[in-house]
Amino acid sequence: MLSVRGLTKIFGGFAAVSNVSFDVREGEILGLIGPNGSGKSTTFSCIAGLHAPTEGSITFQGRNITGLAANRICQAGIGRTFQIPRPFGKLTVLENVALAAWFGQDRNVDRETCWRQAVEALDLVGLPTGPATTTEGMGAAALKKLELARALASQPRLLLADESLNGLDPSEMDQAASMLDMIRREKGITVVWVEHIMGVLMRVVDRVVVLDHGEVIYDGDPAGAQRDRNVIAVYLGRDAAMEFAP
């Protein structure tokens, strides 16, 4: 479904991502993991159109989308959440999501359709759909759900979920992970999930790609990643890798 080849992004001489290549298969949940500064969010931003790659190519469903603007990539069928939700404070919850529904269309769309898609997305994540509900006073879990609803309202075929568990308590983490799995199963949306909370992510994903210093060091099943010497070294140090890895 998505093919990333030789992706490189350089900021002022620093290579945040260097020659990254991986594929995303239709219908899977792929975990994109790695320590802080490993290039995960930069990779997301290049795929979603926030940053233009310095080198490399990105192909989505057979179409080269490398360097396209964010709105065109969204309209092509790729939705994205962000680590820090930033809803429009002067809009209601429903208006926030309806605006995302309008943004994600690659054709003229009427207001009624945007409202209907917004209500469907809010229902899916379990947020109120009343026209007067505001974002004021929303907690971390509700804001994460709103961020997800906005991405879903854009009608994606591929969802890039960035740090969906950050700031949540253990119960909310389990709910968020289950929600991503439900979205994959019930809506048929393929998911690429960047996350630091490994214990939850590993229970849900079908495959993981591990980045370190902007490069891919592992691409395979989650159980194999937990036994891989390079992955253990990145998270726990070389001594731990020598002791625990086969």
Rank of each mutant, 00 (worst) to 15 (best):
D174W: 08
V17W: 01
F244Q: 13
G126M: 08
E95Y: 00
Q155E: 13
N19T: 10
A118W: 01
G37R: 08
T113H: 04
L165E: 05
R25M: 10
T59I: 12
S164G: 11
D206T: 02
A121H: 07
V20Q: 02
G214S: 10
A223R: 14
T92C: 06
V191I: 15
M179K: 11
E147W: 02
M138I: 04
Q175D: 14
L127D: 00
A223G: 14
R111L: 08
I84Q: 10
Q105E: 04
A70W: 09
G62Q: 10
I78K: 00
P128H: 05
L68W: 08
T190E: 03
V200T: 12
L165W: 02
Q105S: 13
N96H: 04
G220N: 10
I33Q: 02
R203K: 13
D110Y: 08
S164F: 07
L159W: 02
V109I: 08
D123R: 15
A240Y: 09
S45P: 06
F103K: 12
Q83I: 05
A225G: 08
I33H: 05
N108F: 13
R185P: 03
D169H: 12
A121F: 03
R227V: 11
F103P: 05
G188T: 12
V191Q: 00
R185T: 12
R238S: 14
G6K: 14
A149S: 08
I47Q: 00
D219H: 04
G67F: 01
A161M: 11
E120D: 11
F14T: 15
E243D: 12
A69K: 15
T134G: 07
I73F: 01
G56Q: 06
L124A: 03
V119A: 06
A149R: 03
R238P: 14
A70H: 11
S164W: 11
T8N: 04
L99E: 02
A121P: 00
V4C: 11
H51D: 03
V234L: 03
G137E: 09
G62V: 07
L143N: 01
G77Q: 11
T66N: 06
M1C: 06
H213R: 15
M1I: 12
E55F: 04
E195Y: 03
A153Q: 02
P222A: 02
F244L: 14
A118Y: 00
R203Y: 04
D110I: 04
E120Q: 11
A149C: 09
V204C: 07
L158W: 03
Q226H: 04
V200C: 09
Q75K: 03
E172S: 08
G220R: 15
D206Q: 06
I197E: 14
F11V: 09
E136Q: 13
P128L: 11
M242P: 09
G137K: 15
G188R: 04
T8E: 07
M202K: 05
V205G: 01
G67I: 09
G13T: 05
E215W: 09
R229M: 08
S41Y: 04
K187G: 05
